[in-house]
Each structure stands twice: as C-alpha cells, then as structure tokens.
C-alpha cells in the first residue's frame, strides 16, 4: 500500500483535499459503504407517485424489485417538494410494507366475540344483499306534499379524503344512484 493510498483511506485527508470539504459525502465513505449498491440503482422499475399523507402533495419515486416495493424516495423533479419528504412521507415504504396490514377479509358476526374469515366474493355478495334490503326497508319515494325524495336514509358512508378522485367519483355516482344521500368525508370534519 503506497502512502497516497494509505492517506486516501483517511477521511480527514479526503475531506481536506477532495470535493467534500464538509465531510458529509465522499470524504466520509468507508470501504464497506463504497462497495454497497443502492436499492434504487438495481430496481426493476420506478413508479412516479405522490405521498399519501397530507395535502402538500410531495412527489415520490417508488422503487420496485421482484414485484416488491424496496424503497420510496422524494422526487427531485417536483416543483412542490424538490425531492424532500417529511418523516411521514419518508416512512411510506414502511406503511405499504407494514406487517400489520390486513390482507384478508375479516368478518364479525352479530354478537360474536371474535373475527372469522370470509371469502372476498361472498363478502361482496353479502354487502350487496344488505344494501338492497336496507333500501327496501327505508325507501322514501315522495314527501308529504308529493314532491320527489327518491332516497334512503338507512345507509351512511364516511370517507374519501384519502382516496383518489376517480374513486370518489364512482362512490358518489353509485351512492347517488342508490338514493343513498348520507355520504360524508373528512372535509366535514
């Protein structure tokens, strides 16, 4: 090992002579970290996304390898966020890959003390049955003066502020067609 190589292995030397006078980048790098490859470099694909938490709307890049999210970073191109993410945005990989996420349907029978499993298809059928029954039981055609009401007050819904515009559009459209007037979201809160 020559003197130069020896010196170059010494961070303070690199800091004083190199391009990193503050010692926050190349100067501080160890042989081990120099040998590492970032997950972002080997990703199969990158999706351009937006942080799901608050409404600042910071840009995100979602890195995917083998069909799994391996990293989420701020999008440096975004004129809103300039690549930055706050603690929540930075934690969104942990959000989407959290082991606590529920990935199967859970069903609680009336008066039960525990959850049961339920098939997604069956759940959808059961929900459709219950909507139609609630509509039938609580339907209001006209008011006392014979003016149209065309609605049910037997069904409620809350939520939308965390969802996509396209989703809110279908929710509003379907509930309105069902006559289910009582839909609300966080904008009321």
């Amino acid at each position: 090992m020559g003197l130069r190589t020896f010196l170059a292995g010494w961070p303070v030397y690199r800091q004083l002579t190199g391009t990193d006078p503050l010692g926050r980048g190349a100067a501080a790098q160890s042989a081990r970290s120099a040998a590492l490859t970032a997950r972002t470099e080997t990703a199969d694909s990158v999706a351009r996304s937006v942080c799901p938490y608050c409404a600042v709307g910071c840009g995100q890049r979602v890195f995917v390898t083998d069909g799994r999210v391996t990293q989420i970073e701020g999008d440096p191109d975004s004129p809103i966020s300039r690549g930055r993410l706050c603690p929540k945005g930075s934690a969104s990989k942990s959000l989407v890959t959290s082991p606590l996420r529920q990935t199967t349907v859970r069903y609680r029978r009336p008066y039960a003390t525990e959850w049961e499993d339920l098939d997604l298809d069956t759940a959808l059928d059961m929900i459709a049955d219950r909507i139609l029954a609630a509509r039938e039981d609580t339907w209001e055609d006209v008011d006392d003066a014979g003016r149209p009401l065309h609605r049910t007050l037997g069904i409620s819904s809350l939520g939308g502020a965390t969802l996509d515009n396209e989703e809110n559009y279908l929710i509003k459209k379907l509930f309105t067609a069902m006559g289910a007037l009582q839909i609300e979201n966080q904008a009321r809160i």
């Binding site: 937006v50 799901p52 409404a55 709307g57 939308g160 809110n168 979201n185 966080q186 904008a187």
Partner: peptide, 17 residues
C-alpha cells in the same frame, strides 16, 4: 393547508351529502 392527500379532491368531487 389541508390535511389529507386528496381532501380537496373529495370536496371538488364530493363524497358529501
């Protein structure tokens, strides 16, 4: 400054009664 990712959208395309 609104607090949910698309709370503005859910007012524009309202899931509101």
């Amino acid at each position: 400054l609104r607090g949910h990712a698309s709370i503005q959208g859910s007012t524009d395309i309202p899931t509101l009664y």
